[in-house]
Design a protein around this nucleic acid. Structure first.
Length: 570
RNA sequence: GGGCCUGUAGCUCAAUUGGUUAGAGCAGAGCGCUCAUAACGCUUUGGUUGGGGGUUCGAGUCCCUCCGGGCCUACCA
């Protein structure tokens, strides 16, 4: 039995995430976690909210709440929505937890001892009216290059020129609009990633089976220009992990916090501690410390492509630089973006379908199936309502749902609500069993490789086998001449249902549970082989005809949603 | 500007990494079935693989060039 540590990129606390965020990390991570659990492997699936940083402070201020209170509330909101999508986290933590605070400070202390931290004095823009330092992009002004009057301090969105805040003409705070700004000197800590460049480079080189998207982004950062640059890991903010060197104060760093991208990945580890402290387990180190049982753990991370540099470089630099035996990631699965009807999903602009809205419209399984079967693996993908309606109706309602209906209802009308007795299998039945066996192995292969789209296609192909068999066997005709033979055919077809339920559970867990309950299935383990699995329901076994598994999406409903979600969320 | 990814049937995607005649699903057409959520099955029409040039016995795959789409570019996270 393999032990699988699985983490999803932690969603930022600032608001409810859209479907693009979901499909880029949490949902495929959940698919993989459910699959590995299904295979009987031990799984630790962790996620959390990423709570620090300037946007959280500003969102809280806008909501008129203290930032800690805002984050606590939003964490609960996100946790509830995650449950709604059946995201099966073993723990859904918070990067603001005391565990993460201590662990982040610990790592900083270890890195300092290893000589991998240096202090840098730099100039930052301070806003008197806001009472805070402003990140470059929170400063607006007129672009010196093109004259655009809403250029940001990091880049002009109009002419795309890279800028420094001091380049701006008539700079003002993007938060308050105040022009009472001042350039001040401030001291920050930098992680000396450049000193670890060769080590990281060799490590990335060794990962020949990683997605091209993952390694090409890592390579770009390693070799672009002067190579991997040191990264500032502290900020002049109030909300965050206070800068400390282990448990000691850090002279000169008073009032500063660690940069969110330093503490956020560390939360992956802290979440396991939170898991223990929440009473869900007793030993987190066997997942994270290679000297305490984690050397045989396989660690897989899921994320959108924007997160790749931090997971391939900064976080490994933190882990390796500590000199301690922490578990390093084995496989990084990264995703492209999901677009919405011709444009981008956008949290800040409120464009697209958000997780809470999606669940108000349809059950989680509909979304899970469409999103996973269209996961943006090789390139950006696009959500359209037409495609969503067509895919869901065809795959879930027609191919799977209708199969269950036709089998159970036919059985009920001819044999009653129990698995019919008598008859025996012939060549046609043996062929079906062999075909299922072949397709099952293909499905497993794609799931092991985390080929999400291919896995969905393979699963669908297994569903189709049931319809092909029924059409070919035609028990409704056979019944008239040879009821025993029809009984055997129906018995086999009925046995496909619990098998489908088990195999489909990673994609559509609710429908899977419904099917198992309707069939009174006791055997819910992953099938060892098709023949055994397809004899799980014995002759005379009672079942009930389930309600329509997936109602179809009508054209009127689709048109209604199409117009309802055409604007921006207010 | 630089780097990376991408362009294959009307639509969404494959193609064992250079190897027979480029394959699936959806949509379309025809036939069959009547158990079923007007569902299912079979057959079938669609492609000069964005354009052009090159390497090779052989190119969707490698090289050059042009065109389109996207992402990243280190202080948003």
């Amino acid at each position: 039995m393999t032990r699988h540590l699985i983490t999803s990129a932690i969603p930022y606390i600032n608001g409810i995430k859209h479907l693009g965020n979901l499909v880029g990390s949490q949902l495929p991570a959940d698919l993989y976690a459910r699959y590995q659990r299904g295979r009987g492997n031990e799984v630790m699936f962790l996620c959390a909210t990423d709570e620090h940083g300037t946007p959280a402070e500003l969102a809280a201020a806008k909501a008129g709440k203290p930032v800690a209170e805002y984050c606590a509330e939003m964490h609960e909101v996100q946790a509830e929505i995650a449950k709604g999508f059946r995201l099966s986290f073993d723990h859904f933590g918070r990067s603001s937890s005391p565990q993460n605070q201590a662990l982040t400070q610990h790592f900083a202390g270890r890195l300092a001892e290893a000589g991998l931290i240096r202090e840098v004095t730099e100039k930052q823009v301070y806003s008197h009216a806001d009472g805070r330092f402003l990140p470059d992009r929170y400063i607006e002004g007129t672009c010196p290059n093109c004259g655009y009057d809403k250029a940001r301090g990091d880049q002009c969105e109009n002419c795309t020129k890279q800028l420094d805040p001091t380049d701006l003409i008539e700079p003002r705070s993007a938060v308050s609009g105040s022009t009472d700004l001042e350039v001040r000197e401030t001291k920050h800590l930098y992680l000396r990633q450049s000193a670890m460049k060769d080590e990281l480079d060799a490590w990335i080189d060794s990962k020949t089976d990683w997605p091209l998207l993952t390694t090409s982004i890592a390579k770009k950062w390693l070799h672009d220009g002067d190579g991997l640059q040191d990264r500032g890991i502290t900020r002049d903010l109030d909300w965050g992990v206070p800068v400390k060197r282990g448990t000691e104060d850090w002279p000169g760093m008073e009032g500063k916090v660690f940069y969110v991208w330093f503490d956020a990945p560390i939360e992956y580890i802290a979440a396991a501690q939170e898991w223990v402290d929440a009473g869900k387990g007793t030993d987190w180190e066997r997942w994270w410390r290679t000297d305490k049982g984690a050397e045989d753990v396989r660690y897989t991370q899921f994320m959108g492509k924007d997160n790749v540099p931090f997971h391939t470089l900064s976080f490994p630099a933190t882990i390796l630089g500590s000199g301690e035996p922490w578990k390093l990631v084995d496989y990084i699965k990264s995703f492209n973006y999901l677009n919405y009807d011709g444009g981008q999903f956008s949290t800040s602009q409120g464009r697209g379908v958000f997780m809470d809205q999606a669940l108000e419209i349809l059950p989680a399984d509909y979304w899970r199936w469409w999103l996973l079967s269209h996961a943006p693996e090789s390139s950006d993908a696009e959500f359209t309502w037409e495609n969503f309606q067509a895919s869901v109706n065809k795959d879930l309602a027609d191919v799977l749902g209708n199969f269950v209906s036709r089998v159970t209802k036919f059985c009920r009308s001819k044999f009653g609500e129990e698995v019919p007795t008598g008859g025996s299998y012939g060549p046609r039945e043996e062929k079906l069993i062999a075909d299922i066996e072949t397709q099952l192995r293909a499905y497993e292969g794609h799931m092991e490789a985390i080929e999400v789209r291919k896995s969905a296609a393979a699963l669908r192909a297994i569903w189709v086998l049931g319809n092909e068999y029924l059409q070919d066997a035609a028990p409704w005709s056979v019944f008239k001449e040879d009821p025993d033979r029809a009984a055997a055919q129906v018995r086999l077809a009925l046995n496909l249902i619990p098998l489908y339920a088990v195999l489909s559970a990673p994609f559509i867990p609710d429908a899977s549970a419904t099917l198992l309950a309707a069939m009174n299935a006791e055997e819910t383990d992953w099938p060892e082989d098709a023949a055994t699995a397809l004899s799980a329901l014995p002759e005379g076994h009672g079942f009930t005809v389930p309600d329509v598994l997936f109602a179809k999406i009508a054209d009127e409903a689709r048109e209604d949603w199409q117009s309802r979600f055409s604007g921006v969320r207010t």
